[in-house]
Design a protein around this nucleic acid. Structure first.
Lengths: 200, 200
DNA sequence: CATGAAAATGTCAACGGTGACAAAATATGT
DNA sequence: ACATATTTTGTCACCGTTGACATTTTCATG
């Protein structure tokens, strides 16, 4: 086969990965996530089951394929805030400038397909934990809190609470059905403000 | 075999369950959780793997065997608070009167055995979510917040934050090593107070 | 004690996921 | 074009978990 002209021809791995992703999403949409087996996806893509796992750590990850990138984006957004700025502001801005609309399209597709709650929910918890760690790390770095100190403890709690706001907001937003990004922003803001002013 | 005299002789299922639990914990302590396979546990107990899963929903659950009971205890503690009382007080008292010492003995054993973090951590997240739901339900009932309202949303966040305090407190407590129950209570109290006064 | 329903367990097959190692495909330098 | 190192994929074996169905054990009742 002749080599492609200019385009940095995707490596075989990249092609395989893409083929797998398309095969998976196609079946997911048609039959649902649980009803689709890795064997079927692999067969559609013309590879072995084992190869699937060389490109995606789990079935869930095909759906959340670009979440890692977004987590990196979030870390970057935190990191780029000026050092002098109050950390609360830094976190608020990073959270509020998160591209929810792009991130949530995949999940919207899922919701439309009924069921799958437990499966997806479990994965959401993992993602939430990652965001929580990310925020905690940022706060620890910026405040220079001593490890194992009460201050570090309170920072851990803070991080988990902020992550809880992010995810409860999107959850509530979905549950209500009216998918307006403005409304999502309002919920995030409302949640963060209620954290700041104290929980009653 | 002769029947036992007085004691309400445990049913066969109860005996099997107990045998499995002991076999599992013995192996867990000696070789660690991950290094112990269900097949081994079942063999030690003289039953099939399938039977193991008839008594415990997962390997993790053998460790957290009585967590369900404690969750029930917690729900009861919440429920028993007088209806007139401010819900914040109800939750605080229920959380603070939780028998952490008894609950955490099993986890202490684990920590001593190194590794296993991811596995156990994942299960902790699940348990935390259950507590969170429990608290949220209580708050929703007591306040009569309309579903899908902003108030209900904020209650969801509150519940997750309180649960985060409970678990971050025990985690921090463990990490510090000085296993004094007084200190654990102090951490819980500190966390709850910082929630109340607002997160900075 | 016999009998039959209900409970407990065994058997079998399947799926999701992972490690170890072998085989094949690809890229690279000569 | 050739030889070689590197990537990519296949093969195999295993573990955790679950559903469906068959078999055995237990237990109440006649």
């Amino acid at each position: 086969m002749r080599s492609m002209p200019a385009a940095p021809s995707p490596s075989k791995a990249e092609r395989t990965r893409s083929t797998l992703q398309h095969a998976a999403l196609a079946r997911f949409l048609e039959h649902g996530v649980e009803a689709t087996s890795i064997a079927e996806i692999a067969a559609d893509a013309g590879v072995t089951e084992r190869t699937f796992y060389r490109h995606f750590p789990s079935k869930q990850h095909v759906l959340f394929a670009d979440y890692d990138a977004r987590l990196g984006w979030f870390r970057q957004a935190l990191f780029l805030r000026p050092p002098g700025e109050p950390v609360t502001t830094s976190v608020r801005i990073a959270v509020e400038s998160f591209p929810y609309d792009a991130a949530l399209h995949q999940i919207a597709v899922l919701r439309s397909n009924q069921l799958e709650q437990e499966l997806v929910q479990a994965h959401i918890k993992t993602v939430q934990a990652e965001f929580s760690r990310e925020i905690a790390q940022f706060l620890l770095d910026r405040t220079g809190a001593a490890p194992a100190s009460d201050e570090a403890y309170q920072i851990s709690i803070t991080a988990q609470c902020v992550a809880a706001v992010m995810f409860t907001a999107t959850e509530t937003w979905f549950a209500r059905g009216d998918l307006d990004v403005q409304e999502l922003s309002r919920l995030v803001d409302l949640g963060l403000r209620s954290l700041k002013s104290g929980i009653a």
